[in-house]
Design a binder for these strands. Structure first.
Lengths: 336, 336
DNA sequence: CCGCTAGATGTAATCGTTTACATCGTACCA
DNA sequence: TGGTACGATGTAAACGATTACATCTAGCGG
C-alpha cells in the first residue's frame, strides 16, 4: 500500500511538501499542490492515521462510556455526541460498561494508553477517581465530561437536567389529579441522579402535607423486568397506591404490564408517570406520561464541552443544566 | 509521562529487554523480568498503544457498522460481539450509520486508514463494494463479516438466520389460527433480508391456496412510527385484514397502537405477529407473538468468524445459519 | 583448555508521519 | 547593484514501541 514517500516520488517533491499540501497549509504553491493531489489519486494513497496519531500524540477520538447501549435512553444522547464529534473531525469510541466498574476501568485505560483523547461518561462512576482523589478535581485526570449523571463531591464538568425540579413537577402533576397514595420506583440507590429524583418526589409530597411511607419507595435497575417486579411488590401489599412515579420509562412500561396482569384497568385504576420520554413511551398502552429530557442536546453540549477542554487544555468545573418538560399523555388521569 | 526508555534506565536494562519482559517472551530471565516489573510500577509506565499499533501495523480493533444503535434489536448483537472481542484482546469501534451510505463509507475509511483491522456490518450495504467489484469476493477487501443482513450476489462471510423459513412459520401460525386475510408490513424494499421475509410470507400464503394482494404488502423503515403509519393505511381500506405480520417488533408495536387508536380491540379483532423478540415485545399490550432471533449468538459467531479471518488472512466464503424460534404470546389469537 | 552451543541481553533499524530548521530563489527597495 | 526579506521547498530529527540481528557469557564435551 502506497505511503507518503511514494507520493513524493511520483509528484517529484519531498515528503514534507506532500504532508503540507495534504493538510492544506497555505505555504505550498497552487501548482505544486495540484501535482501532489494528482499523484495521490494516481497511487490511491490514504494517509495512515495510525502514524499520524502517533506522531501528533492525538487520536481525535473521544471515549464514550455508556452503562448499557441496549437502553434506548442513551442512544439519542450518543447521536448528539457523535454529530458534534464528526463535525469537528473527531470520532467516538463507544464503551458499554454494563454498569460494571471493572469494564469501566478497562475502557478508561484506553486513555492512558493514548488510544483516546478524553472521556464522556454517561454512567455514575468516575472510572479513575480513587478514594484519595475524590472531592477535588485532580489535574492528572484526562479530559473528562459527565452527561446525565453527576457526582456530588467531584466538581467535574457536567451536562444534566435539574432532576429535583423534574421529579417535583411529575409528582405535583399526580397530586393535582387528586392522587394521595403515590409510590416511587427508583433506579439504583447509589445513583446521585436517582437520589435527586427521590428527593424531588419527597419534597413535593411533603409540600402537599403527605408523608412518604417507606414501603412506597422501591429500587430497581432501570430495566423492564425491574419495573415489573417492583410493581408486583407494590400490588402485593394490603392497600395499593393509586399512582406510581417511575425513575425511567422502561421501568414504567414494566410496571404497566404488571398492573395489567394483576387485573387493574389502566389508566382508570392506576396512574403511571415515567421519566426520559424514550420513543416507546408514546407507543405504550396507555401512552406514557413522562418527563422529557433533551437527550440530543445533552449529547451535543457534552461534546462541545469536551472540545473546549481539549482545545484549552484545562477542565472548567462547569455544570450545564438543560430544560426538561412534562409530557402528559394517557397514563395519568384523575384519582378514582 | 514515562516511556519505555525510562523503564529501561530505571531497571538497568535495554529497551528491548523491557519490551520482551512485558509481553511475556520466554527468553528473559526471571530475575530480570522482576526488575523490569518493579521499574514499571515505580514510574507508573503504561505502554503507548498508539506506538505499538503503529509499529505492529495492527490495531486490535474491529469496526462494527450498525444502521441504528437506537434500535434495541442491534444492541444485544453488539454485546455478543464485544464479549468475544474482549476475550481475545480486541476492542470494537461502533459506527452508527443511520442507514446512510455516506456515513457508512466514512466509517469504513477507518480501515484503509489503518485505524481498524476489520469490519462487521449489521446493515445491508457493503461500504466498499463498488459496482465493478460486485458479485465476486474481492481479495483487496479488508477482513469483512456480515451479520443479520447479507447480499445475494457477494459471497461474503455471513451470520444470519433463515428468514424465508422464519417468515413461513410466522405466517403459517396465523393461517393455523384461521386467518385468511393477512397483511405484511415489510422493512425497506432494498433489504435482502426483507425480501426473504416477504418471500416466505408469500410462499406460505400460496401454499394455503391464498393470493397475496398488492395492497396487503406495505413497506416501512423498521421504526415505531412506520409501523403506525402503515397500519393506518391498512385500516383505511374497504376491508381490514384480520392479521398483520410485521418485519420487526418495533413496527409491530407501532401497528398495535394504530389499531387500538382506530378502536379495534386487541387481540380479538386483529392479530399481530412481530419479528426479532426485542425486550419490549414481551411488555407490549397485548404481549407480542414474534420470531426470536438468537441475537447474542449472532454477535458471538460473527466475531469468531472475524477472528478466524484475521488469524488466517483469508476470507472463507462461509455462511453460518442459526436457529430461530416462534414465540407465541398474546397478540395472535383465532380469527373472528 | 579450547571450541561450541544456547540462552540472555544489547544494538540499531524500522514503522509513516509531522515539523523545526535550513536552504534556495526571486523580487523589491535603497 | 547589493542587501534584505519572504515565500516555497527540502532535510532530517523526532514520536515510542517492536524485532531482526549481533554480541556476550557460561557451561559443557572432547
Amino acid at each position: 500500500m502506497a505511503n507518503i514517500k511514494d507520493v513524493a516520488r511520483l509528484a517529484g517533491v519531498s515528503v514534507a511538501t506532500v504532508s503540507r499540501a495534504l493538510d492544506g497549509s497555505p505555504k505550498v504553491a497552487a501548482a505544486t499542490r495540484a501535482r501532489v493531489l494528482e499523484a495521490v489519486a494516481a497511487c490511491g494513497y490514504v494517509t495512515n492515521a495510525l502514524a499520524r496519531n502517533f506522531r501528533q500524540r492525538r487520536t481525535h477520538t473521544v471515549l464514550v462510556l455508556v452503562p448499557d447501549i441496549a437502553n434506548p435512553f442513551f442512544s439519542r444522547i450518543i447521536l448528539g455526541i457523535e454529530r458534534v464529534a464528526l463535525e469537528h473531525g473527531y470520532r467516538i469510541l463507544l464503551g458499554d460498561t454494563q454498569y460494571n466498574a471493572e469494564r469501566e476501568r478497562a475502557y478508561a485505560a484506553l486513555v492512558t494508553q493514548r488510544q483516546a483523547d478524553g472521556i464522556i461518561c454517561l454512567g455514575m462512576n468516575i472510572p479513575f477517581a480513587t478514594v484519595s482523589s475524590r472531592s477535588r478535581l485532580d489535574p492528572d485526570w484526562p479530559p473528562f465530561v459527565m452527561a446525565c449523571e453527576y457526582d456530588g463531591e467531584i466538581p467535574a464538568p457536567t451536562v444534566c437536567i435539574d432532576n429535583v425540579r423534574a421529579a417535583i413537577e411529575a409528582t405535583r402533576h399526580l397530586l393535582d389529579l387528586g392522587h394521595r397514595d403515590i409510590a416511587f420506583i427508583s433506579g439504583p440507590r447509589a445513583s446521585p441522579l436517582c437520589r435527586d429524583r427521590l428527593a424531588g418526589f419527597t419534597e413535593a409530597m411533603t409540600a402537599a402535607g403527605l408523608r412518604v411511607r417507606r414501603e412506597r419507595v422501591r429500587y430497581g435497575d432501570f430495566s423492564l423486568a425491574a419495573g415489573h417486579q417492583q410493581m408486583r411488590a407494590l400490588l402485593g401489599g394490603a392497600r395499593t397506591p393509586s399512582a406510581v412515579f417511575c425513575a425511567n420509562d422502561e421501568m414504567a412500561i414494566g410496571a404497566l404490564r404488571a398492573a395489567r396482569q394483576a387485573g387493574l384497568s389502566l389508566p382508570s385504576e392506576l396512574s403511571i408517570v415515567g421519566f426520559d420520554d424514550i420513543a416507546f413511551a408514546e407507543f405504550a398502552t396507555p401512552a406514557l406520561t413522562t418527563i422529557r429530557q433533551p437527550r440530543e442536546q445533552i449529547g451535543v453540549r457534552s461534546m462541545q464541552l469536551m472540545l473546549e477542554i481539549l482545545r484549552d487544555g484545562q477542565q472548567p468545573g462547569r455544570r450545564i443544566v438543560l430544560a426538561h418538560e412534562l409530557v402528559v399523555r394517557e397514563s395519568s388521569v384523575a384519582a378514582p
